[in-house]
Design a binder for these strands. Structure first.
Lengths: 339, 339
DNA sequence: ATGAAAGCGCTAACAG
DNA sequence: CTGTTAGCGCTTTCAT
């Protein structure tokens, strides 16, 4: 089963490369190549297991039929799920997906974008570190097709698909208030991410709107790379002393999991003493003791819509490039925030 | 910021494409190109943001510096983690990663392999459906570099990195026996996967070795695509009637999660009435009520070793191609299998 | 209806 | 030390 090339099949069949190429790309009819010739070509290719070299094809065509996907971390189940949906949807449109993780590092993200551009991806889907404003601006100016997901740059007009972080967090907080909680804390990641700012804001607005006293001491923002050890201190500060909280909003799933571990180690009864709720969830949140309430993100929609917008822009060069989509999260009420 | 090519920089600098290409590929010194010329080239390239076209480069070089990764499902946290480690390790060696999910479908896997070959990946890492023996055999015969992970074909000599499924399952079962459990059931996926067979075998051998009566009614193998609804029946059958079990071994994480849900809905006290243990785990298994014991797979090692073997084979064509690695799982004892 | 020939951007003998 | 030249495998215009 040796490798066979376009040229070989042209030679064997006494045809030109042109004819073979045309037929193999389904352009036989429009170029009026006889049915019989077409059949011969197709059968021969099939029989000899012909595989066009996509690098050659891509070089010639000036495109690779590949989409690049850059996420902070593919082993985060949230991004893994999005990746899975992106891959599925991309395939529907005939595109492959190359992915890479930036590890929340701006420089890595920068290199990844370059590298993918080198590899001639036809478009990019990026869950950005949000620390590469210039890079994104350059991409935009060069008119290269891309869409941001999960995180966007508020100051740049681009395509993006995000969720309503503000609304989701506000709704979560209001639910706790509705349950009669009066001293509600927030534990988040220290970050410039607009998503995180919006979640904090949603929480704060809910607090104020309900006539409760905002208390900056009730807000803890942990270092992303060291959140586990900082969590211990944060929880300790929140549950001891006179101003202890009776509820905590976590701005992301791994914080909620970590926070619950610490609450337990302090012997706190969740939800009786402290109710908790999480933005986004892990697979087993419904099994946890107690089951953790969460605001679920529509991962499938995020992936699908991102691909659709991207493909539109890649294939229709006139497409406007500030296609903004803000999706709603879904509040899942479980025992962790009250009875 | 218009696109700039090798030719452009040669022209601008009044040099030949050769010189420029050499320098840009760090072969300036070995080709005795003057330091000064090198500096001019590098600076010009830098300044104009030169990006070599990897399709052209790949076509010329006959390789793409890309590794293809095929897994059953990238949104399964187990594979997502492996993918993450593979990506990281591959980058150390200068390779990119393209991934795709086969959805446990043989035909899809077949197409994926073809497609990746078309795209000129330099090597393949495959967690196979194990239903493509011929395809794998062909790959092997063509001498194309690849390594199987997680699942291997027992009848074909290939590179592979798997875990000791038999030993892990045996150890899990023995632990339950050591806890005084006397009627132990197994819930698995109906599948030809060697991994699943080995897990079942490990369970069965542990049962026999300890003088307990094997009972085929205590083994339930569910349909992969419909395991949730079948789980309800399986659990019901296991916990009702005279021969109800006092422990269950689950052969994979999502089965354990699903099984626990059903046990609860039947009002079973875990672990008092029924102890459970899982092969592999989900992120929050330690938080679940009760915390679920599990045999953890070494995902990082699986990824790293797979890449190392593959790179060896890709870069040293004399490398033997039956590099077999069987890694140990790690038993994590938590409350779900007894006090 | 089919073929010859040029070209995509880069690498690598080989010759100077 | 540098330049010329010939590909890599495929697509596509332009003749025929």
């Amino acid at each position: 089963m040796k490798k066979i090339f376009l040229k070989d099949i042209a030679n064997e069949l006494n045809l030109s490369k042109t004819a073979v190429s045309l037929v193999l790309n389904n352009r036989g009819d429009e170029n009026k190549i006889s049915k019989n010739t077409q059949k011969r070509i197709l059968e021969f290719a099939q029989k000899h297991n012909y595989r066009p070299n996509q690098m050659a094809r891509g070089l010639s065509l000036g495109k690779s039929e590949t989409i690049g996907l850059i996420v902070p971390n593919i082993s985060d189940i949230f991004y893994a799920k999005i990746a899975s949906h992106i891959e599925y949807k991309a395939k529907e449109f005939g595109y492959n997906v190359v992915f890479s993780s930036s590890n929340e590092d701006a420089q890595t993200e920068h290199e990844l974008i370059s590298s993918m551009l080198n590899r001639q991806v036809d478009g990019l889907i990026i869950a950005s570190t949000q620390k590469n404003q210039n890079e994104i601006l350059k991409l935009k100016k060069s008119n290269f097709p891309f869409v941001l997901i999960d995180r966007h740059y508020p100051d740049i007009k681009t395509n993006y698909v995000i969720v309503d972080n503000f609304g989701g967090a506000k709704q979560m907080t209001e639910h706790l208030i509705g349950q009669g909680r009066t001293t509600i804390g927030l534990i988040s990641i220290k970050s410039e991410l607009d998503a995180m700012l919006q979640r904090k804001l949603g929480y704060q607005v809910a607090i104020k709107d309900n006539g409760m006293t905002p208390n900056s001491r009730a807000i803890k923002e942990l270092n992303f790379f060291d959140y586990q050890s900082e969590m211990k201190k944060a929880i300790k500060a929140m549950v001891t002393g006179a101003k202890s909280v009776d509820a905590i909003v976590f701005t992301t799933h791994y914080l909620a999991a970590s926070g619950l571990r610490e609450l337990r180690s302090f012997g706190i009864d969740v939800p009786r003493e402290v109710a908790i709720i999480s933005f986004d969830e892990l697979g087993a949140f419904d099994l946890v003791d107690p089951p953790i309430s969460a605001s679920r993100q529509p991962v499938k929609d995020i992936g699908n819509i991102a691909v659709e917008i991207l493909v539109n822009q890649m294939e229709d060069k006139n497409e406007k490039i500030d296609n903004k989509r803000v999706l709603k999260t879904e509040l899942l009420i479980r025992k962790s925030c009250g009875v």
